[in-house]
Write a protein that binds this DNA or RNA. Structure first.
Lengths: 187, 187
DNA sequence: CTCTAACCTGAACATGAACTCCGGTTCCGA
DNA sequence: TCGGAACCGGAGTTCATGTTCAGGTTAGAG
């Protein structure tokens, strides 16, 4: 889909990168609400060039999102290295959410009601899910996460936090409430 | 905004209701992604008629959302009647979220990045916030919610849950995790 | 250096959806 | 019953944005 890295003329390869860079920045800022003309201008190219490299807007967005997910997988892999199960979990959780905060396109992909969901695509292209599952299991086994905590709950939590990223940065408090529970002493 | 109930010709009042009914149903189903033509057809009217009653799509949506918020305020008022502070809180929370689940337009209004936020408009038109604040305070005072729980946290929680309403009905689990916390025994 | 396939440009086009407009219709007071 | 103000219908207008393509430019093999 984004593949043809080899056998591109030098200028073509250069322009392709420029498009990706411009699109990444703009999508990250304003999510889906960016015009192709705008991306072209930012990249210092004509619109036609965008379409030489990407079939349509959707494909361009997919390329950007794909990159983010690869970065996300790398992050997860790194988090899994931690000896302490809880540290691994926290690193993954906050790393994931900080990326989401910095990138509206990423949030858009994860929160949007797309069909088929990006989550599914990711499951087929990266092993992010598998790594996450392992990290979660370790934290559960160490007694740091409740017994019935599943990898699906990680998705639940992150979606919840991401929904609180517009406006003030309330998502950290949301995560804190989740970690500690909202109950009081008399519960 | 939605005001002129009196001094409308009989057919006009009837049609106005038809428009509101059709719009409410469609918006509830598919949120913002509904065409004016579609609403007109569903109401058995021409598009022109929609525009006779509402300045634009935004105004129509606002009227619908406004109604939902009034219903929400009534719900909150009813919940506040409960003698048990916790029962009041739970009634409000689940009532609110069940409404959100049934109405995509409502979710759209609450989750969207609109400017100014619907939340602000609501604060000026209804006393939903005040009632919620009272319910929250009672639950805190009774020791059923953590001491530092604020009304803002109610918003945080509901936004989080609403973000998990697409696809499977995972929002109930999200709320449960929030209520109990995700920590394990060794935390 | 030359030649051509690959590449680039951006004005023009296509599409879709909000909104307008005015001839025709309906309500309702007198 | 009648007159006219209020109202309605829906084809047509406008505007925004994604996409194309004919014509000019450039990389790079020979």
């Amino acid at each position: 889909m984004t593949a043809p890295e080899r056998s591109l003329r030098a200028d073509a390869r250069r322009n392709r990168e420029a498009v990706l860079a411009a699109a990444a920045e703009l999508f990250a800022q304003r999510g889906d609400a960016v015009q192709m003309d705008e991306i072209a201008e930012r990249a210092g190219l004509g619109v036609g060039t965008l379409y030489r490299h990407f079939a349509d807007k959707q494909a361009l967005l997919a390329a950007i999102i794909g990159r983010r997910f690869e970065a996300m997988t790398a992050l997860a892999r790194a988090a899994a290295e931690a000896e302490d199960p809880w540290e691994a979990f926290e690193t993954l959780l906050y790393g994931y959410l900080e990326s989401a905060q910095a990138d509206a396109a990423f949030r858009f992909a994860l929160l949007g009601p797309e069909e088929p969901s990006w989550n599914d695509i990711v499951a087929e292209k990266t092993d992010f899910s598998a790594i996450t599952e392992r990290i979660v299991r370790r934290a559960v086994d160490a007694g740091r996460l409740r017994d019935d905590f599943r990898a699906d709950d990680f998705v639940l939590i992150t979606r919840g936090a991401m929904a609180n990223m517009t406006g003030a940065g309330g998502w950290r408090r949301h995560v804190m409430l989740l970690l500690e529970g909202i109950g009081g002493p008399e519960r």
